[in-house]
Simulated scan of single mutants.
Amino acid sequence: MRCFKLDEENYCLGLGFVDQVPTGAELSATATTPDVGATGDTGVEQDIATGDQSPAAFVAERAAMPKDQRVAAELEELQTAWDGRDKARALRLLGVGEPTRTTPPPPGPPTPLKPALPSSSYIMKGYQTSQEKGYWCGPATFQSIDWADDKQQDTQASWAKDLGSTSSGTAISAMVKQTNLKTKWDIAAGTYIVQNVGHWDTKKFFTVHQNHLADAAPAPVIEHVQLLKRYFPYLAFNHSGHYQVGRGYDTKNGTIGIFEVFNERRFNSRGNVTNGPKNIPASALFNATLANSFKNIGL
């Protein structure tokens, strides 16, 4: 999990683009943090590992590769990051140096204003899916994203193969890579990148979703959360790191629309029926993202 300078932006393998480069100690702590869902939440132990790849599993997988394969994987990840560095810069600068109401306008002709974004926007209606295996949240999320793109519903098994999914989960870098390779969403939204949100706040998190989901060519967000009851009250149990489809927002209610791909009842007879469209308070979804050791999203 090393960090590199790409033009003006900082990118860390596994973590994505970062606003602040983590220290060696912080990277080490991230790489060794166990993926558990019970911490501080009513004493209920983690029930199902739903399928993201923990930092420890990511590091172990890379370390187990022969050197030439590991270098190739790292270069491929960095190439995707290089292609998306302009987007990363725009995200880093979003909200920085915004004028206050008392700031006089600059001299010269006024800058044309961008059209106001709608108060709410939702995409991908009807393209929700449900993961077929406990560790297939990555393939299920990608199945939904690709199905809405080309109207062809390829199998989760085929996407698990393309994503390199194992019982240890799916890497977010693989989710981003396949979105760029196998869909046209990157044409709509620019090259998809892995973006760390560890130094964002709820306002910026919500604004980025607005811009991505209601621009001239809206496109989904790959949500990367820790699936805990405190953030997703429709759950009966806590679960592990997880992927969901970000597919809308409502400004009035301060919510982000997702497709939940995990049906708790399918894997535990005492669980709730949980899959399908949901509207989650932006603060809850942001905090669920921060609760995941990676603290990142794909967009």
Rank of each mutant, 00 (worst) to 15 (best):
D47A: 09
L181F: 06
K204R: 12
K177T: 10
D215V: 08
S121T: 02
P34T: 04
A189N: 13
H212N: 07
I222H: 08
N263Y: 10
E26T: 02
N180K: 03
P107E: 10
W82T: 05
K114P: 02
S173N: 04
I193A: 05
C137N: 12
I187M: 06
D7A: 15
F206E: 04
T80S: 14
N275H: 13
L285S: 00
F237R: 10
N253D: 14
C3T: 14
P99A: 14
M175A: 07
P55I: 01
V44L: 15
N10G: 01
P139S: 09
K278Y: 07
D149F: 07
T100R: 10
K114M: 06
T155N: 00
F58Q: 06
L94R: 11
T33F: 00
A25H: 15
K295A: 11
T102G: 01
T202V: 13
E45Q: 05
A157D: 11
I222D: 05
E8T: 13
C137A: 12
D201I: 00
R265I: 02
G169P: 08
A81F: 11
D186G: 15
V261L: 11
A288L: 03
D215C: 15
F4V: 09
I222P: 04
T39A: 13
E223H: 00
T255L: 06
D186M: 12
R89H: 14
A57W: 11
Y249D: 07
L227E: 06
R2A: 10
G95I: 03
A160E: 06
T251H: 04
T191M: 07
V36Q: 09
G164Q: 08
I48C: 05
G198H: 03
Y135P: 00
M175R: 04
N253S: 14
P22M: 05
T274E: 01
A60P: 10
R92Q: 10
H212F: 08
S54M: 06
V225Y: 04
A72P: 04
V221W: 01
T50K: 12
I48K: 12
A64Y: 07
A288C: 10
A88P: 09
A72D: 11
F237Q: 11
S173W: 00
T129A: 12
R62E: 15
G24C: 01
D52W: 04
I258D: 03
A25D: 13
F267M: 08
T289M: 00
E45Y: 10
R266P: 04
D83N: 15
P104K: 02
A171P: 02
A60I: 05
C137F: 08
L27S: 10
P233M: 01
A148K: 02
K177P: 02
T111M: 15
E74D: 13
G43H: 06
T100V: 03
N268L: 08
E8Y: 08
A174G: 08
